[in-house]
Design a protein around this nucleic acid. Structure first.
Lengths: 254, 254
DNA sequence: ATAATAGTGTCTTTTAGACAATATGTA
DNA sequence: TACATATTGTCTAAAAGACACTATTAT
């Protein structure tokens, strides 16, 4: 990060105040996924209908400007945005990427850092966000998203599509879907989550072998009464911060 | 990306100009890797010794402030930074991540978007950057980096470490290292690159089978005279924009 | 002819896919 | 006891690891 050398004239001119010329707008957005009613769903907020803000009334990813007084760093900012909408404190959170350019926000050159959160649904029943008048879960259907790509504010349709793609691709070889379940969970439940996110059935035997063989993945916590005729074993994650990577991808030979 | 609602008082106050309060500094940095003298190397630039800029004389990743007039978007900005130092036009370039916070730059809250470039060494012999007084390649050794982590400016030591980690991990299951070679290249050369980046030997037979079996990866371009007793077949990449993903990771059983 | 490197073949091991068989707890 | 679901077992297939073998060409 070196200061770029503009204006080659005046070689020893006193350095101007750092970038007092136009600075881009800086925001953080969060793509929040959870599993509700046997479906992958994403959390969206409705933008205010009144006022001078762009995209009034449209649905958008939760997020907003970095507050240089409140936020120590980007991750803290993402957690704050999430807390404002869901009262969730410590979800699985990873960076998805950045989108920045001149045209994505009518107010000017802007850049957003997008995070990617996976929540167990049980953990957010509580409040629905204090100030969030309109916060809703939307199912992410097989094709991609329920909403047409450009029905979301800004370039959030694209961002959401990228998030879904990343999730689907990582599910092939990591334990990411486990973060969508409240603990304790059973192997049949976990397998079901994989099937929902992947959109195809997974072989029971292979799935169990893989899951139980993975080091530092699951920990037994005793049988669970799920209402099933035979009580399945309950498990919890050894590490809720980091997913486990499997040595191969899931693949259907048929 | 909704405007965060500060100052709950004055419910209907006229909206202030967008974030005319402190905006973070926005930069783009590029971690440029290439393969030189049978070693993975990274491109660093030396910060000016004179002037009011932070970290004078220290080595840093090439990069700098986004210029909202010059740059259409983040990727264009990264390409511009790269061009300024290497005269390379279209390398393999992917986002690595963002680092942002209050303390990483003494000039204030700053956020950097880091890209990750892989270059075939042959392509940058030409110039060494017009204005770049000090641009040098540094070998990335097995332990991580040649330079101690905190000998780089800003948090660039951390960033570089993350880039190396990402490269090493992706090498296990993608064709990324192929972007480090000028075309045409031979399979023994490609295998050598994998061994260099991974830091361990790779079985010849398994490597060839995997490489040749991967769809849309390699294209034959006729035998190459490399000086070897038997002329090996030359190949070029079908797609220089996107790496190929292999269905399994490399693993040594011994 | 020999040496050195390119390229192939064979055998074993691992793990997933397919699917059948067994175990267990509730109605 | 019957049934539904959990769990295990068996067989096959695909692909990697290990390593030996063959092919080709410059000297």
């Amino acid at each position: 990060m070196s200061t770029s050398k503009k204006s080659p004239a005046l070689p020893s001119a006193p350095a101007a105040l750092v970038q007092d010329i136009a600075r881009p707008l800086v925001t953080v957005d969060v793509v929040v996924f959870s599993l509700i009613d046997e479906a992958l769903q994403v959390l969206l907020v409705q933008r205010p209908r009144q006022g001078s803000e762009p995209f009034p009334g449209q649905w958008a990813l939760p997020g907003g400007f970095v507050d240089v007084l409140l936020d120590d760093d980007l991750r803290a900012c993402a957690l704050r945005k999430l807390r404002e909408k869901t009262a969730v404190e410590s979800p699985y959170l990873e960076q998805l990427g950045s989108w920045g350019g001149r045209l994505r926000d009518p107010r000017g050159w802007s850049v957003t850092q997008v995070y990617f959160a996976l929540l167990p649904w049980a953990s957010l029943q509580p409040r629905k966000g204090a100030n969030a008048a309109d916060v809703r879960w939307f199912p992410v259907d097989a094709a991609g998203v329920t909403l047409a790509d450009d029905s979301l504010a800004f370039d959030h349709g694209q961002i959401l599509a990228a998030a879904v793609k990343r999730l689907r691709s990582k599910v092939e070889y990591t334990s990411l879907p486990a973060f969508l379940l409240p603990e304790p969970f059973t192997l049949p439940q976990l397998q079901r989550v994989y099937e929902i996110v992947l959109g195809r059935p997974v072989d029971k035997s292979a799935f169990r072998t893989r899951a139980l063989a993975a080091p530092d993945f699951l920990e037994e916590v005793g049988p669970q009464a799920t209402g099933a005729p035979r009580s399945p074993m309950g498990y919890r994650l050894v590490n809720r911060q980091q997913p486990v990577t499997f040595p191969r991808t899931f693949q259907s030979r048929s």
